[in-house]
Amino acid sequence: VDNKFNKEQQNAFYEILHLPNLNEEQRNAFIQSLKDDPSQSANLLAEAKKLNDAQA
């Protein structure tokens, strides 16, 4: 993981990586967004979790 991520951002990265119901395309999009703007990690994680739950 890129060293410019802080602890919260790293946690978001790993959580998104391991959400079971996202397809690869969705997962990659969230990860790319996280890399583009790490400050949005909490929002991105919340969105990813919502999508993950919706696809459960």
Rank of each mutant, 00 (worst) to 15 (best):
Q26H: 04
L17T: 10
N52Q: 03
D2G: 13
L22K: 00
A29N: 09
A54K: 04
S41M: 07
D2V: 03
A54H: 12
S33M: 10
V1W: 01
Q9W: 11
F5T: 03
F5I: 04
K50S: 11
E8H: 03
R27M: 08
I16N: 00
R27E: 01
A54W: 14
N43Y: 11
K35F: 10
Q9A: 05
L34D: 00
F30E: 00
E15R: 05
S39F: 10
F5E: 09
D2A: 05
N52Y: 02
L51Q: 04
K4P: 08
K4C: 13
A56N: 15
Y14S: 11
R27S: 03
R27W: 01
Q40A: 07
A12V: 14
L34Q: 03
E25L: 15
D53L: 15
L45V: 08
L51N: 04
N52L: 01
N3H: 08
N28T: 04
P38C: 04
E47C: 11
E47T: 08
R27C: 04
P20S: 13
D36C: 09
N21L: 07
I16K: 00
Q32M: 12
N28C: 11
L45P: 00
N43P: 04
N43M: 12
A46D: 15
N28Y: 09
K35T: 05
L45K: 04
A48I: 02
K50P: 01
E8V: 00
R27Q: 09
K7A: 13
D2N: 09
A54M: 14
S41F: 15
N52W: 01
A42K: 07
D37F: 05
S41E: 01
D36H: 11
Q55G: 15
Q32H: 14
N52C: 03
L44V: 07
Q26D: 06
P38A: 11
I16A: 01
L44R: 08
F30T: 01
P20F: 05
R27K: 07
S39V: 09
L34P: 00
F30W: 03
A48H: 00
F30G: 00
L17H: 06
E24L: 08
F30Y: 07
Q26N: 06
N43T: 08
A46Q: 13
K7H: 13
L34M: 05
Y14M: 15
K50Q: 13
K7E: 11
N21P: 00
P38M: 09
L17R: 04
E47N: 04
Y14T: 13
L19W: 01
K49C: 08
L45Y: 10
Q55D: 06
E24K: 11
K50W: 14
D53S: 11
E24C: 15
N52T: 02
N3D: 15
K49W: 06
N6D: 12
N11Q: 14
N3I: 05
L34E: 00
L19C: 10
N6H: 02
L19Q: 05
D37Y: 06
N3A: 03
Q9T: 07
Q10R: 06
I31P: 00
L45C: 11
E47Y: 05
Q26W: 04
E15M: 12
F5G: 04
D36K: 07
D53W: 03
N11L: 15
E15L: 06
K50R: 09
A42M: 14
Q55F: 11
E24S: 14
L51Y: 08
F13G: 03
D36L: 12
E15S: 10
H18P: 01
E47H: 07
A54Y: 15
N43V: 14
I31C: 11
E47L: 05
S33H: 15
F30L: 06
F5W: 07
S41C: 08
Y14V: 05
L22F: 03
D36Q: 08
Y14E: 12
E24Q: 12
A48V: 04
R27L: 06
N23S: 03
Q55Y: 15
F30A: 07
L45D: 01
I16F: 04
D53Q: 03
E25T: 02
A42L: 15
V1I: 11
P38K: 04
Q10Y: 08
S41A: 10
A12R: 04
N11M: 13
D36N: 11
F13S: 03
N43S: 09
Q10W: 12
D2H: 04
E15G: 05
S39N: 10
A56H: 09
K49E: 04
S39G: 12
L22P: 00
L19I: 03
H18W: 12
A54T: 15
Q26A: 06
N23I: 15
K49V: 10
E24H: 08
N21W: 15
Y14H: 10
S33P: 02
N23R: 07
Q55V: 14
L34A: 04
K35Q: 07
V1E: 15
A29D: 13
I31H: 07
E15H: 13
P20I: 09
K4E: 11
